[in-house]
Simulated scan of single mutants.
Amino acid sequence: MKIAENTLEGVEKYIDLQLEGQYTKSEIKTVQRHLIEHYYNISSARQIVEKQHRLSESELLKIIFAMKEMKEGTPLQYVVGDAEFCGRTFKVNSNVLIPRPETEELVQWLLETNESASPSVLDIGTGSGCIPITIKSELPNSKVSACDVSMNVLKVAISNEKLNQVEIDWYILDVLSTNQPFKENQFDIIISNPPYVLKSDMDSMDNNVLEHEPHLALFVDDSDPLLFYRTIADRAKVWLKPGGDLFFEIHEKQGKQVVNLLTEMEYSSIELRKDLSGKDRMVKATL
């Protein structure tokens, strides 16, 4: 299907027709704004007043190809190759999860409670690198390290390090292995958004997540849903300085279990916090 009018208004109508029934009206509006700004460098404000702005055939083709991908279920962020996180732009592809607003809240909590001008911070399971890069950007004197199990993942994170003009120490690490690349008492803060979605939840998830985002970063076996929390908390008892803080993003149904786990492991000042949707989503504990 071709775009009937080679104007911004024509592009908006085309996107609306293509995505109708697949996305809500508000989601379609977001897609329209994002694609027009991404492909044509026309801001949201200009889009309102420049409806008759004319576009070339090659410019229209970009929207047609984007719609083809989105109708097949590819998330918008993977189509355009970037996502917003804490007011910054991060490159993303199917090797890494799309950053979520809940993770922004976790990072904000860390920044609000941190009392050091130059903390040493470790992010475990870094994905796109949005967590460590945001922390380093907000705390320029901090010493930030991050790790992930895959070099393909770290390539994305390193590209975001360059994009956001910061310096992070990167490590390839499977946290479930016996490898211990860090020193005792090395970090003031350890933060992680580990895999926490139960495999049994797959049936209730959107296809665009299931078919496009990396399962390795999403899912954990039902037989041991706290595997990553227990392992990371155990490693953190070595890697954290005395009095250091551990931050986790969690499954909304696992708040009490994670708190109980950390209590049993003799962490103190354990706090469970809800996200803006009112769901248990974050835990902070002190060694």
Rank of each mutant, 00 (worst) to 15 (best):
D188R: 10
T24V: 01
L272H: 02
D275F: 07
K256Q: 10
S145H: 12
Q47M: 03
A117Y: 04
V258C: 08
L97M: 07
E167W: 09
E20Y: 13
I36T: 02
M202Q: 09
Y14Q: 00
S118L: 03
H34V: 12
I133K: 01
R54Y: 03
T30C: 05
I98E: 04
I133R: 02
I135R: 04
D221S: 15
E5P: 00
E161Q: 14
F219N: 03
S223Q: 08
Q77N: 07
K68R: 13
E50M: 14
A217M: 02
K155H: 10
H34T: 12
L154D: 00
L55F: 04
W109A: 02
I158N: 07
N208A: 00
H251D: 15
T103L: 05
D123A: 05
D234L: 15
S200W: 08
L262T: 04
Y267H: 08
K241G: 12
N95V: 01
G127W: 07
N260V: 01
E59W: 04
S116E: 13
D123Y: 13
N179S: 06
S118E: 08
Y229F: 14
M151W: 12
M151P: 02
L35Y: 00
K155F: 06
R88Q: 11
L173K: 08
L76H: 09
I42C: 09
K199R: 11
I15V: 11
K2E: 12
M70Q: 11
V31K: 02
D123G: 01
R281P: 13
I250C: 01
V149I: 14
Q254W: 03
V49Y: 09
W239P: 05
E105R: 06
V175C: 11
E167S: 11
K68G: 14
Q254A: 06
Q108D: 14
K199L: 15
P242N: 15
P132T: 11
G255S: 08
M67E: 15
Q52P: 01
T113H: 14
